[in-house]
């Protein structure tokens, strides 16, 4: 197993190198001289030359990349032009906020998506199946930022049931945190619930056709036991890996949700950085997100092998 994990880690290295080259190249897409963007209003040639030297922009591009990636490997992702804080510190400060939002959204998605998927598969071809599929497709088609706006309009503005914005850590005040975060978590979790429902349905349909389910039924087991113990347990393997993959998507999907509900997280950090032309922060966020995504892929692969006895022995 350890060999398998190490092998997967080695395979991930070229991907990380390539994505780092891509992120580095982003800066080169900036129209005009990047020093002018850094200098703001300042146009003194001496200052511009000083900045060019300071950021080693006179070096050949491959050398600039090596400097940049060398620093990134030591945890130095540059300094935010706006706040003057190290980019890594900013990311580490915002990440727990988004993480809490993502975990809550994932719980909501699992609570809706899996039971709906099982029910839809068991009742295939019935009105329930039709409705579940229609709701899932709608969930995938609704832009989540619009859903957020509509929920704010109804629940916060009209009925005044929940606050429309802000953030409270779950460790500070769990109840207040739940009331502030439940709406954004629901918005973020909807599309995910739809994806999970569709995958659970198709995995369950495959398993329900198998011989061991037929045998379980022939033995006279209760339908509930057949579905939950025999069928779902086997259908769960691809769902677990999908969940790991989707968690990475959640962190990215939080960009818009955090913007609407004014949550000071990772997503808001990148959007604010874009508007403040704080390019080091944008690069840092993309790099960290991509590396996190690759790690989630790795976890999904390992989980798949661990949960599948046939592959476990091969690994």
């Amino acid at each position: 197993m350890l060999n398998f994990v190490l092998r997967r880690l080695v395979i991930a290295i070229p991907t990380i190198i390539l994505i780092s080259i891509f992120v580095f190249t982003l800066q080169k897409l900036l129209p005009g001289d990047p020093v002018l963007a850094m200098a703001g209003e300042e146009r003194d040639p001496q200052v511009l030359e000083y900045l060019r030297e300071k950021y080693r922009l006179n070096d050949p591009i491959p050398i600039q990349y090596l400097n940049w990636i060398g620093n990134a490997l030591r945890g130095d992702l540059g300094i935010s032009l706006r706040t003057n804080q190290p980019v890594l510190d900013l990311i580490l400060e915002k990440l727990p906020v988004t993480f809490q939002l993502a975990v809550m959204a994932m719980i909501i998605a699992l609570l809706i998506g899996i039971p709906a998927g099982i029910l839809s598969a068991v009742k295939k071809g019935t009105f329930i199946d039709y409705c579940a599929n229609a709701i899932a497709l709608s969930g995938l088609s609704i832009p989540n930022f619009w859903l957020g706006i509509m929920l704010i309009l109804l629940i916060s503005v009209k009925w005044q049931l929940l606050p429309a914005s802000g953030f409270v850590s779950i460790f500070e005040d769990p109840l207040r945190s739940m009331s502030v975060m439940i709406m954004p978590a629901f918005v973020l979790g909807t599309a995910l619930a739809a994806t999970l429902m569709r995958h659970t349905r198709s995995a369950m349909l495959d398993v329900l056709k198998s011989d061991y389910v037929r045998t379980a039924r022939a033995k006279g087991l209760q339908e509930r036991t057949v579905i939950l113990k025999h069928a779902f347990r086997n259908a769960a393997t691809p769902i677990v890996t999908l969940t790991a993959l989707l968690f990475g998507e959640l962190i990215a999907g939080a960009v818009l949700t955090e913007q609407i509900f004014t949550i000071p997280g990772f997503g808001k950090l990148i959007v604010d950085a874009v508007f403040n032309r704080d390019y080091a922060v944008v690069q840092g966020v993309v790099l960290v997100t991509a590396v996190g995504f690759i790690l989630m892929n790795l976890i999904a692969d390992v989980a798949y092998v661990l949960l599948n006895p046939k592959l476990r022995n091969l690994a």
Partner: peptide, 24 residues
Amino acid sequence: SRCTEALLAAPFLVLAIALAAFLG
């Protein structure tokens, strides 16, 4: 394939935002 995997590693929307931000 390696380039494809690298691009797939960055979440779609984050990649699009970053590109749009740098392109203008």
